[in-house]
Nucleic acid binder design. Structure first.
Lengths: 154, 154
DNA sequence: TATTTACTTGACTAAATTACTAGGCTATGT
DNA sequence: ACATAGCCTAGTAATTTAGTCAAGTAAATA
């Protein structure tokens, strides 16, 4: 497993989408503003998420993205996997060929850590997160900020 | 947290040291052969491990390294930390300033994962690992390989 | 005390990866 | 038709990794 901003961005953006899903598709420039993520980078990430079937797109004016399933069916692990952040941590990918085609000394240690991490990430769903108070608070603040920004521009 | 070969090498080498500790210091070229890690790279890693107080060095002929405490006092987390692989996973390091000095949407999620991973890595000691059967097996194979290599050279 | 052996230090580097940007294209609603 | 929004491919600057190289210093043995 590698935790980089790519994975964090993907999860953050998907959570934003889950929070704002409901009344029509959500477009990327909204998400870009709310989450401080560059629009073109988001396009890349959402391309992968779409190709993995987590979201659906609608083109043209008023278009944007929608979740392709309920938030309760989308785990954090799925999101990370979709943007090429494998949750796996071993060098050999569990194949036991880490040292000259044989197990290395620490093979089982990394396998165990692997299981801990993936159990956790497979167990947390977007649906769980959007119901948490701390998430709701941050989301409310971000919505307010975006509204203020739009009013300033007029 | 980032899991790279640097961290894996450090843990592997420390485990090798723990396994061969007892009858005098262990020198790095042994470890280099047994674990397939470049000697000069090991020197770098062991410098950091020594500066963090995990090991002690003995110079001169017959010199090498020894653990500075018992294997039961050395956790995997300590080893990783010593070679600059922080176990922390959040962007802000827990400071809640991930987005414009405020908490980002996924702050608490990463904090939770953090706790899982560091609980695990703090809980596993070198002393635990050297008693495991799979570790003993791999170590026995590696010792045999090294002996055969030394005989060939004569 | 000369020599060997081993550890120490710091600078350097090739390759890979990350985190983007640029620019053009395609579909859709008004 | 035209503005809007997603789609796709390349390219790229910065950073990090995984080392190497060279010139030491310290300790033990003969």
């Amino acid at each position: 497993m590698k935790m980089t901003t790519k994975g964090r961005y993907a999860v953050t953006a998907m959570l934003d989408l889950a929070l704002h899903d409901g009344d029509g598709p959500v477009n990327l420039s909204e998400i870009s503003h709310r989450q401080d993520i560059s629009l073109t980078y988001l396009e890349q990430l959402f391309g992968k998420l779409r190709r993995h079937g987590l979201i659906e797109s609608a083109r043209g004016p008023g278009g944007g993205y929608r979740l392709a399933m309920t938030p309760d069916e989308i785990s954090i692990a799925k999101v990370l996997y979709s943007v090429d952040e494998p949750v796996d941590i071993t060098r050999c990918g569990g194949k036991q060929n880490c040292q000259n085609d044989e197990r290395c000394l620490t093979h089982d240690l990394w396998m165990e850590l692997n299981r801990h991490v993936s159990d956790f990430l497979n167990g947390v769903m977007l649906g769980d997160l959007i119901q948490r108070n701390n998430v709701k608070q941050v989301a409310a603040r971000q919505d307010l900020n975006l509204m203020q920004l739009l009013q300033q521009k007029q």
